[in-house]
């Protein structure tokens, strides 16, 4: 039997980067407080000891600047990983990601490539208020030329990040900062997970819950509660929201005939909207009910705990929505 270990999400992410840096000298990481400090979430702790400060490159607080530098470095022979401490700061790198990284290949008629990864965090409930709690991944899904990965387990995080680093395109990789301590089994040997392949996290027959990133654990918790009410829920995680495994999502919807889509980003014009529409188009005649979307409440994330908790989907909200959808 192949060896597996229990790793936290943070350890899995770190291991992916360390292994890829050992494998390929062109890979380097840049960002704020990543070297000695190992990032504010301690995800990179120890990497600088092995790879030195040239490859674990501490930058000034200049998100646009170092992201732009990464684009140029990627075009000219390096494979940079950009560390954006809080996904909220994506706003500062938008020109570099959207107008530069995403378009270089196309605008040059396929001549230049931008093999880079932008890692960022998402997720609320850290009592960090409106500028440190958002889940802005949907913004990047809107842009042709970018790929967007949303791992929900240590196993997926490691395999997807390795694929991201080996990809010749700019990949945006969002990690839920509340999940860094989540444990899961991770094989010791090298593996990658291809993009655009969904994973059924739990099989079921009565209802499909499509969940991403932080919401996968919530969906699994809700599925447990539903089981106690004799409702069998399938939980499926697309793992990358672009490319999107439309076939697997539609197949699951056809099988169960009822679907909830849950994602921590804002629902309006968001990931849930897109997935719901894919399923509505692809499985319409097999559906017993309209596809239900659940996302963050459409407000800036509030600071006060009872307020903040009310804005994020939780097991109870997903459970109740599922029960209602099943007519119970």
């Amino acid at each position: 039997m192949p060896e597996t270990r229990e790793l936290t999400m943070a350890e899995a992410v770190r291991e992916a980067m360390a292994e890829e840096m050992r494998r390929d000298p062109r890979v380097f990481i840049c960002g704020e407080d990543i070297a000695e400090a190992g990032t504010v979430f301690k995800v990179l702790t120890g990497l600088v000891d092995e790879f030195g400060t040239e490859r674990v490159l501490d930058t000034p607080i200049s998100e646009a600047g170092f992201t732009g530098i990464a684009v140029g470095a990627a075009m000219t022979g390096m494979r940079p990983i950009v560390d954006i401490m809080f996904g909220d700061f994506s706003t500062l790198v938008m020109d570099q990601m959207v107008n530069q990284a995403a378009k270089v290949h196309y605008m040059s008629g396929g001549k230049w490539k931008v093999p880079m990864v932008m890692r960022a965090t998402l997720g609320a409930t850290r009592r960090s208020a409106a500028q440190h709690s958002q889940s802005l991944h949907a913004w990047f899904c809107h842009i042709p030329g970018l790929k967007v990965a949303l791992p929900s387990t240590p196993y997926d995080a490691k395999g997807l990040l390795k694929s991201a680093i080996r990809d010749d395109n700019p990949v945006v990789f969002f990690e839920d900062k509340m999940m860094y301590k989540l444990k899961g089994s991770v094989p010791a040997e090298d593996y990658t997970i291809p993009f655009g392949v969904a994973d059924v996290k739990r099989e079921g027959t009565d209802i499909t819950i499509v969940a991403t990133s932080s919401m996968v654990q919530v969906a699994l918790g809700a599925a447990q509660m539903l089981e106690e009410h004799d409702i069998s829920a399938e939980v499926i995680d697309p793992r990358t929201v672009w490319p999107l495994d439309e076939k697997a999502l539609i197949a699951s919807a056809k099988k169960t005939s009822r679907v909830i889509v849950v994602d921590e980003g804002y629902g309006r014009y968001g990931v849930t909207a897109e997935i719901a529409s894919v399923i509505a188009e692809g499985a319409f005649f097999d559906l017993e009910a309209p596809v239900k979307r659940i996302g963050a409440m459409h407000v800036p994330i509030p600071f006060s705990p009872p307020l903040e908790d009310a804005t994020v989907p939780n097991e109870q909200t997903v459970f109740e929505a599922a029960k209602a959808l099943c007519g119970r």
Binding site: A64, G65, V71, G72, A74, T76, M78, P80
Partner: peptide, 24 residues
């Protein structure tokens, strides 16, 4: 490396190319 329709938009790219040149 490309002309750029964003005013100042290529400053990062040029600097990144210089980073590659130095590293490699």
């Amino acid at each position: 490396l490309g002309a750029n329709a964003i005013v100042g938009g290529s400053a990062g790219i040029a600097t990144g190319a210089a980073l590659s040149a130095k590293r490699l």
